[in-house]
Amino acid sequence: MDSRTAILSKIKATRDRRDETARRAAVESRLARPVAGLIPARGQLDPEGRIALFLDMIERTGATHERTAGAEDVPALAARYLRERNLPARLKRGTDPRLKAMGFEREAALSLTEGPSDGSDLAAISHADFAIAETGTLMLLSGPDNPVTLTFLPEHHIVVVRAEDVGGDMEAALARLRMLKGKETMPRTVNFVSGPSRSADIEQTILLGAHGPRALHVIVVG
């Protein structure tokens, strides 16, 4: 008997299978129609309340943030972020149409490259598809628009999210994911990011900048 059959039949032998039809139906319906469980009250706020909570929560993780009215302000804000930290005026991004439409060419001093990271980039900018107020979390989807290596390799990660995409809870983020990608297809990775990378492995002291970015900067647009 192959291992797969052996494991599955060992499980079956211990389960109550008197009504196998009902057992199958329970699994099929749960998978076909996912239901949200208990959602805490914390994130259930009006849109402005959600944005305020999101910013408060993500700040507690050690991230920085700012808010601007229009997407066209983002290139200048990104350039200022780099300048204020004495970083070279260089930025990497993917092919996200929302980022491309922002007019980065207006920032003449900023040199912008496109594509995944090879580890040599100090700073990158990505566009999130959703944010979660309850926990201060960004949702990024991998792909050429926002390559996953940009989320993890650079020392500084700037993430843009639209104000109308700040939801209350993870269930709202998952609903958005299904809407964007269709129920059947997931991107290679869905990355939920709550703050800059950190470690407490040495004497339980919390330190920022373990293997991923040392700094996370969030720009809320709208």
């Binding site: 929560m57 993780t61 594509g115 995944p116 990271s117 309850e134 926990t135 201060g136 979390t137 991998s142 792909g143 050429p144 390559p147 996953v148 290596t149 997931m186 991107p187 290679r188 990775t189 869905v190 990355n191 939920f192 990011v193 709550s194 703050g195 800059p196 990378s197 950190r198 991923g212």
Partner: peptide, 22 residues
């Protein structure tokens, strides 16, 4: 004691044909 860990990643299959990393 964190509300959420810093990185929660859902991975599905290998990189997609159009992906440039993964």
């Amino acid at each position: 004691g964190q509300d959420m860990s810093v990185y929660t990643t859902f991975s599905t299959g290998p990189r997609r044909p159009e992906d440039e990393d993964g």
